[in-house]
Every structure is written in structure tokens, then in C-alpha cells.
């Protein structure tokens, strides 16, 4: 075997053999990927019509989802977003399958780690969404209750309740994703505890006179003139 064969021809042969081995895999991967694109677009089209037909847009408008999306800068309808999500999930699934078809160890390892992490991302998104709805609901409950109780700082009460729940949800989501596990919980505890302490101090120092007046009224019976309506 001469040097030319060893240095030039053999590598070329090996390369050619590997290319010949790889090409069918590549074409089948490409085929799966294209098929994924077609199926994804088709499913997106079908589900967009299905969600519109079952009135999901109306339902999401009532539940405040549309408001949330608009705040986040999204102009699409909820049915459109859901259909797009289904389409993209399909395309991603087909892409993953097509990449696995290539049988490249590095890509396989990467995909495996990604697939194992994906459930955490979904759970985190779910926590954030649930947190957002609960924050809105309880924030509004607190706002209405404090307005009806005649609290001048009703707006602040509503916003504080909303923010606390949202902050809790974000902390839980980050915990789920494993980002700064201990740090996030400690930071949340410090911030939340700090806010409560600040409010206690503010009320204790700033509201000393009000508290005194309130107690005096209660103990001495010098109450504000109240209505004696029987509303019913």
C-alpha cells in the first residue's frame, strides 16, 4: 500500500462510505422534518377553527386571559395562540424524531437532557399562569372588600395582595426550574418578611394617633355617627 493510498484514498473512501451510510439517514430525517412541518401547519389550521367554534375566545375574554395577553403585548386571539402552540409542539416533536434518526451521539445526549428538562418548563409555565389568575382574582376580591369597608388605601391593599401572590408564583416557578433554588426562597422570605415588617413599623409609628383615637372611641363609646338604615 503506497503513501498516496494511505493518506488520501483511504480517508476519502471512509468518508465516502460514511456519507453513503449517512445519506439515507439524512434523507429520512429531512423527510420526517418536512412531514412534521406539514402536519404541524395542518393541525394549527384545524385547531384554530375548532377553538373558534367552541367559543374559547369568548371564554378567555371573560376570564381575563385576553387582558393578560394584551398586557404582555400579544395581539393574537387565544384560539390562534393555542393553535400555534399545538402546531409548534408538533413541529418540535417531529424535529426531535428526525434528529434522533441521524444517530449522532452528541445530538442524542443533548436531546435527552432537553427532554428531561422540558416537563419542568411546562410545570413552571403552569405555575406562573395559575399564579397570575389567582393574583388577579384575590387582588380584586381584596380591592372590592376594602372599598366596601371604606378603607382609603383600598387600591394599595388590592395591589399588595396581587403582587404578593404573583411573587409567590414566580418564586415557585423558579424553584421548579431549579434556578438559584435556595437563594430564591431565601430572597422571597426576606422581601416578604421585610414588607410585612415595614408595614407594621409604618402602621405602628405613623398610625399611632389613629390607633389611639380608634381605641378611645371603642372604649369610651364615642363612635362616629352611623346610619340606622334597615336596608331590606
Amino acid at each position: 500500500m503506497n503513501i498516496f493510498e494511505r493518506l488520501i484514498a483511504e480517508p476519502f473512501e471512509r468518508f465516502f462510505e460514511r456519507t453513503v451510510e449517512f445519506l439515507p439517514l439524512f434523507f429520512s430525517a429531512l423527510l420526517i422534518f418536512v412531514l412534521g412541518l406539514v402536519v404541524g401547519l395542518l393541525l394549527k389550521w384545524i385547531f384554530a377553527r375548532f377553538f373558534r367554534a367552541v367559543g374559547i375566545d369568548r371564554l378567555s375574554e371573560r376570564s381575563g386571559t385576553v387582558e393578560l395577553l394584551k398586557k404582555g403585548g400579544m395581539q393574537d386571539s387565544v384560539s390562534g395562540i393555542l393553535a400555534k402552540m399545538i402546531g409548534w409542539i408538533t413541529i418540535i416533536m417531529f424535529t426531535v424524531i428526525s434528529m434522533r434518526t441521524l444517530e449522532i451521539p452528541a445530538v442524542e445526549n443533548l436531546l435527552e437532557s432537553l427532554l428531561l428538562y422540558l416537563p419542568n418548563v411546562f410545570v413552571a409555565i403552569l405555575i406562573i399562569l395559575t399564579g397570575y389568575f389567582l393574583a388577579n382574582f384575590f387582588g380584586r376580591t381584596a380591592l372590592i372588600a376594602s372599598v366596601n369597608a371604606g378603607l382609603k388605601l383600598s387600591g394599595l391593599v388590592g395591589r399588595l395582595v396581587k403582587l404578593s401572590i404573583y411573587l409567590l408564583a414566580v418564586t415557585m416557578a423558579l424553584e421548579q426550574l431549579g434556578i438559584g433554588r435556595g437563594t430564591i426562597v431565601i430572597a422571597f422570605a426576606i422581601i416578604f418578611g421585610g414588607v410585612v415588617l415595614a408595614l407594621s413599623l409604618a402602621f405602628g409609628l405613623g398610625g399611632r394617633d389613629i390607633a389611639k383615637e380608634y381605641l378611645e372611641q371603642k372604649l369610651k363609646g364615642e363612635e362616629e355617627k352611623k346610619d340606622e338604615f334597615n336596608h331590606l
Binding site: 380591592l143 372599598v147 371604606g150 383600598s154 387600591g155 355617627k225 340606622e228 338604615f229
Partner: peptide
């Protein structure tokens, strides 16, 4: 007995919030 001022204040708080 009626406390008209207080009632109007409650209404105003509602309009604001």
C-alpha cells in the same frame, strides 16, 4: 339617623378605585 357625608365619601372611594 343618616350620615350623608360618609355615604358620599364611600361612593367617591368606589368611583376612584
Amino acid at each position: 339617623a343618616v350620615n350623608l357625608e360618609r355615604m358620599i365619601e364611600r361612593f367617591r372611594l368606589g368611583v376612584k378605585e
